[in-house]
């Protein structure tokens, strides 16, 4: 008996392949193309091999941007994750009008476009007309995000926390809501403290959604561009120039397409790698428990 092989089924995946090719593979190949060539204009390109990659990897400017980026991501994760969980724990537990109002209110920042968020905070922090800036100034606290590095960081971090903590909150809240009442009742019967309830019931049950929340916030914050660009433009000096801002400066501002392309690819691989490492460790941790 010979099994007939019919390979026609491969045609079924063709539409997806075409779609992915146009949406991801072809644009990315253009970038790859730029990253290994140089040009003197007139659409004349010549091969430079891995030169751009070497340049980017040894560039102090990019190293600095990377450290700023890592610092920023670590800080916002350290604030947003615990804060989001804390707020989720204090959301109303029963379904009702009050719960709906709370949910809408906390979800509002998520619905605002990035550059609008940036503009809001840019104005909010101004000493002359912004509520935050004006108030701080009147209280005698020297605050100026356009000139002071600390103030610039402070503003951007608060802005990100304001914009994105809700995401962590909503995901955690969904996780919390899926815990059956019996768990809380059993904990009461067992005379567990509030902390034990959190540690042994709520946290384990939220773990799945928290992995997603951390991953999303990591990727997003690592790629942040619009909001700090609108608020500080990367300044003062280069104090808030994160990777994306630096990349855009390099590609559009200086028109160094080669290094910028190499930079993009490295950037992409870093995010991919970190996300992958992150995800596999989290998932493995989960498996070990079983």
């Amino acid at each position: 008996m010979k099994k007939t092989q019919n390979q026609k089924a491969w045609f079924m995946v063709l539409p997806v392949l075409i779609l992915v090719a146009f949406s991801a593979i072809i644009p990315m190949m253009t970038v790859v193309n730029y990253s290994v060539q140089d040009t003197f204009g007139n659409n004349e390109f010549f091969w430079v091999g891995l030169e751009w990659f070497e340049e980017v990897l040894h560039s102090e400017r990019i190293h600095d941007a990377l450290w700023r980026q890592i610092l920023f991501t670590v800080i916002i994760l350290a604030i947003e994750i615990p804060l989001g969980i804390f707020m989720a724990l204090h959301m109303p537990k029963k379904n009702g009008l009050w719960t709906s109002i709370c949910l809408v209110v906390v979800a509002l920042p998520l619905l605002i476009p990035w550059n609008v968020v940036g503009t809001i905070w840019q104005i909010f922090g101004r000493i002359d007309i912004g509520l935050l800036g004006y108030t701080l100034d009147q209280l005698g606290i020297s605050y100026n995000y356009t000139q002071d590095t600390f103030d610039a960081w402070f503003t951007i971090i608060i802005m990100d926390v304001w914009h994105w903590t809700s995401l962590v909150l909503l995901l955690s809240y969904a996780g919390l809501r899926s815990i059956p009442d019996a768990y809380y009742q059993a904990a009461k019967i067992d005379q567990a403290s509030r902390w034990s309830v959190f540690r042994y019931i709520e946290l384990p049950k939220m773990k799945g959604v928290l992995i997603i929340a951390i991953l999303l916030r990591f990727m997003d914050s690592f790629m942040i561009y619009t909001e700090p660009f609108v608020v500080t433009g990367g300044g003062p000096g280069n104090a808030t120039t994160f990777l994306s801002i630096d990349l855009v400066k390099m590609a559009i501002g200086q028109f160094d397409l080669g290094p910028a392309a190499a930079f993009s690819l490295i950037y992409f691989l870093v995010i991919l790698l970190v996300s992958w490492v992150f995800y596999t460790t989290m998932v493995n941790m989960d498996k070990e428990n079983e």
């Binding site: 059956p180 019996a182 009742q185 019931i201 428990n289």
Partner: peptide, 11 residues
Amino acid sequence: QVFQFPVVYDT
């Protein structure tokens, strides 16, 4: 009290 559905602390 023991409930209808088992409640254990999974971790």
